[in-house]
Design a protein around this nucleic acid. Sequence first.
DNA 1: CGATTGACGTACG
DNA 2: TCGTACGCCAATC
Length: 111
Amino acid sequence: MAEKDFFTNVYDVVRLIPSGRVCSYGVIARYLGAARSARMVGWAMNNVHNVEPPVPAHRVVNRLGVLSGKHHFSDPKAMEELLAKEGVEVKDDQVQKFDELFWDPIKELEL
DNA sequence: CGATTGACGTACG
DNA sequence: TCGTACGCCAATC
């Protein structure tokens, strides 16, 4: 896999997240080889609005399964609604069964 | 051009 | 075990 920009790499991984599944920034960063660059993953999401195809950022949450970036969407409730639409239970901006719905690229892709 | 912030996470005390 | 500090890189002020 040709190494592209860090952001592009993030978008690629996020797009690979299956429906009804969620992922965390740190895991993606670690998958890219930058375990401590989780912030860049979040920053990359900021560019998502200028990238195509659109990236399902609503499937990306923090390590705690909290919708940290829901406030950055067109509408704050859009994120939890999208997740709920895919079968992900969201309560109090928090993903339920996060451990079960968690999708780890390192575990799924590199396996 | 320099300092601060930002959708996070890990390390250390 | 909980709290605080730091790192990472880019964009914005």
